[in-house]
Design a protein around this nucleic acid. Structure first.
Lengths: 215, 215
DNA sequence: ACTTGTCCTGTCATGCCGTCAGCTTACCGA
DNA sequence: TCGGTAAGCTGACGGCATGACAGGACAAGT
């Protein structure tokens, strides 16, 4: 790995360069939160950062390229999500606790990065491998751990043999991601934030263990 | 409801006008399937339809406006999804069958309209109420029916009192939608299409009834 | 053929894109 | 202190998409 930050035309970026680069990324992040992805223009980002469009193009090939940078950064943070699942027990009361903390941590993360995540989601759904890989990186952190948990329960005979651990884990994680993306949507069904979490935890617990939790 | 198709400037569209309008919508649909939403330009759609950009603007305010038309059309078809759930029994073998058919029907629908649905999803996630309403219209068809099913089971004492039917139903539907959007993603976890469906059905059945299915 | 209303397009001003040459700034060795 | 060199930034420009308009082409009825 180089670790060297480079401009589009190959120069290495110094202290000042990295600062403006970061400022552009920050402004882009803000714009993604406040306006539709389709309407985010290079000129707006540049203006917001107090610089010129030409400067933007010195550091990024286009808006998409810059978005990928932000997403990459977030993916690193997302690796920490593993801790929500790794090495947890899914039996008895600690199982319920594990489910609750997973839901809580996951929703929190998604909420914090919702603007960039919905763009990543779109890119992945459109088949762009770069976005797709980033999405995987984040979800794998949780999915792989969950898959292992199911496999373990399966080897002990506590979960049916015909369950595909990866399919179940992946589906549950997809559910968490989807619900997090559309949290507002549940309000129109009369479901409040606070009510949502325990019900999600219930579904996760049911999916992993096949049994109702003991609270 | 008017039912009258109108141009942007208020004229009523005749036979020929409606034809070109529809052609524009079809071409836009195709473009959405083949290129990123962000890169779909009016001029490309017009070119593909063998007409001029000015014609496009006669029928739609912008790309987004046209997308909404397509989405609205799809939402009508989506109302038929209700049949996948309404009036089904969730006990015994028929419960498993209900789960399987729901998964199958839902994934099929999502797959058929994946291009437009991911744009709707994006718009909804970005907080655009128009997209949001369309998404609701489709999901409500299933969610409401599922909610009723859970309520019924609850009233018979077969499901715990502290379960929120709407939250569970909404979460399960969100899961189905998310998995459908990222079906390719599961392949990288070594999960094949055919394996995915029964596992999803299992999760749905578990979520609705709280019990493992009897196949 | 004439009229009427629908339908389409050429054209234009405006604004964003993406690139380049050239200017300014910071760093560094002599 | 003084160039020299590379980093950093921007004005300006051709190219393209946008969105509006007026006017021409077309179909249908008289």
């Amino acid at each position: 790995m180089t670790g060297q930050v480079r401009t589009v035309d190959g120069r290495v970026a110094g202290r000042r360069g990295q600062a403006t680069r970061q400022k552009l990324l920050d402004c882009l992040s803000e714009m993604l939160s406040s306006s539709p992805y389709r309407d985010v223009k290079v000129i707006d980002v540049a203006r917001k950062a107090g610089t010129s469009p030409a400067t933007f193009y010195q550091y990024f090939p286009d808006v998409e390229g810059a978005v990928l940078e932000i997403a990459e950064e977030m993916a690193k943070e997302g690796a920490g999500l593993t801790d929500l699942v790794a090495g947890r027990s899914w039996v008895g009361k600690s199982g319920w606790q594990a489910a609750e903390e997973l839901v809580d941590g996951f929703l929190g993360f998604w909420r914090k990065h919702d603007a960039i995540l919905r763009v990543v989601d779109l890119g992945a759904a459109e088949g762009d491998k770069r976005f797709y890989k980033i999405r995987m990186k984040i979800l794998n952190a949780v999915t792989n751990s969950l898959t292992d948990s199911v496999k373990e329960l399966q080897s002990k005979g506590k979960v049916d043999k015909d369950v595909n651990p990866a399919a179940v884990a992946g589906s549950l994680v997809a559910m968490l991601a989807a619900v997090a993306s559309h949290q507002k949507g549940f309000q129109s069904w009369g479901v409040k934030q606070a009510e949502l979490k325990p019900n999600l935890a219930l579904l996760v617990h049911l999916g992993i263990t096949g049994k109702k939790p003991t609270k």
